[in-house]
Simulated scan of single mutants.
Amino acid sequence: MAAIAYVSQDGIARITIDRADARNAINNEVVQGLQEAWRRFAREDDRVAVLGAAGEQAFSAGADLKDMPRDVWLSMPNLSVPCDKPIICAVNGFAVGAGATMVMLADMAVAEEQAQFIYPEAKIGAFAGVMAGFPPRMQYKAGLEWLMTGDPMTAQRAYEIGLVNRVVPKGQAMKVALEIAAKIAANAPLVVQAMKSIARSTLPKSSTEQYYPQRVMLDGIANSADIKEGVASFREKRPPRFTGK
């Protein structure tokens, strides 16, 4: 069974991390599946995406320690795949590490009342840097305390500091997120996309948020047919025949 499910209906892309038995921990399959989901959402006709997770226990337990993922940043919304269409997270339980980062980078979030947000990197001595871009998305002092202590944060506190839009009863996050998505999907898509594009352009970006999109472009060049053609033409002492692919 695929680690990521993608269902398109009524202009809404419902994307699900489907590893409930592993608390929806992020492994390489999840990273690959989510990046493809973001690419699909960006290029197809769905107007809003809702990211959720299977089971009741966790939105995501973060990186899978039994299958450590490479390039976790590729799975993040609004990071590796540029997209002006809104992305909403439906948080149904623990959101740990990279799972909490997904919520931070999404455009909106709905959390169930029992959900907790945990960013343990300061306690284990690891930091990828993406979460450092939190200040435009939640209160600076409160967010910094949360990151530096590594203490769990309740859904209510996440609401108070601006990490989530709404706190709802247990079992209702996806329902409410889809209700919000349906209202947005019924509106003029060009206007909605312009709103997100202009709003995001006003947000200051951390160095990691600036770097990773550039890395996507540079990795594309490094893995292109054109670079192979350039090397081959040099070796064969002939003019290159570039295709832009």
Rank of each mutant, 00 (worst) to 15 (best):
W38L: 08
N92M: 04
K245M: 10
D71N: 06
A126N: 13
K245H: 10
Q32F: 10
V103N: 07
A181M: 08
V176M: 05
L65P: 01
A22Q: 12
D219N: 09
S207D: 13
G244V: 09
A90Y: 06
A194G: 05
A61M: 02
V168E: 08
W146L: 11
E29G: 07
R47G: 02
M76P: 10
G220D: 11
K170D: 14
P213F: 04
Q156I: 12
P240N: 05
R238D: 05
V81Y: 04
E145Q: 14
A2K: 12
D226N: 04
E179N: 07
K205W: 10
A126M: 12
A194T: 01
V176G: 08
D71L: 07
A126K: 14
K85L: 02
M1E: 11
V231R: 14
S206C: 13
P204I: 06
A20R: 13
R238W: 00
L65R: 13
V7D: 15
G133D: 15
A177K: 03
R19N: 12
L105V: 10
P240A: 09
S75I: 10
A37S: 08
V50P: 04
L178A: 08
E113P: 07
S207F: 10
A49F: 04
S60G: 01
M174V: 07
V72T: 15
V130P: 07
P169H: 04
V176T: 01
R70N: 15
N27M: 11
D64E: 04
R47A: 05
V164Y: 09
D151L: 06
A199V: 05
A53F: 13
V103D: 02
E36Q: 10
L178M: 05
L163Y: 05
M1H: 01
A132Y: 00
N28E: 09
L190P: 03
Q172F: 07
D71Y: 05
T154A: 01
R19S: 01
A49C: 06
K85T: 00
I17K: 07
S201K: 01
F134N: 07
L163N: 00
G55K: 07
K183G: 12
F127T: 04
A106Y: 03
E44V: 00
M108K: 15
P240W: 04
G99M: 02
D10S: 11
A188F: 14
K66F: 08
I15C: 00
A20G: 03
L203T: 11
Y212I: 03
S224W: 02
E112T: 01
P135Y: 02
I88W: 06
G33N: 05
L79H: 03
A225F: 06
L218S: 11
V168M: 06
A37D: 02
E112W: 09
L65T: 14
V91G: 09
M108R: 15
E229I: 07
P169N: 00
A20H: 10
Q35L: 02
A109G: 11
F234D: 05
D64M: 06
D219P: 09
E229L: 10
V50M: 03
L105N: 12
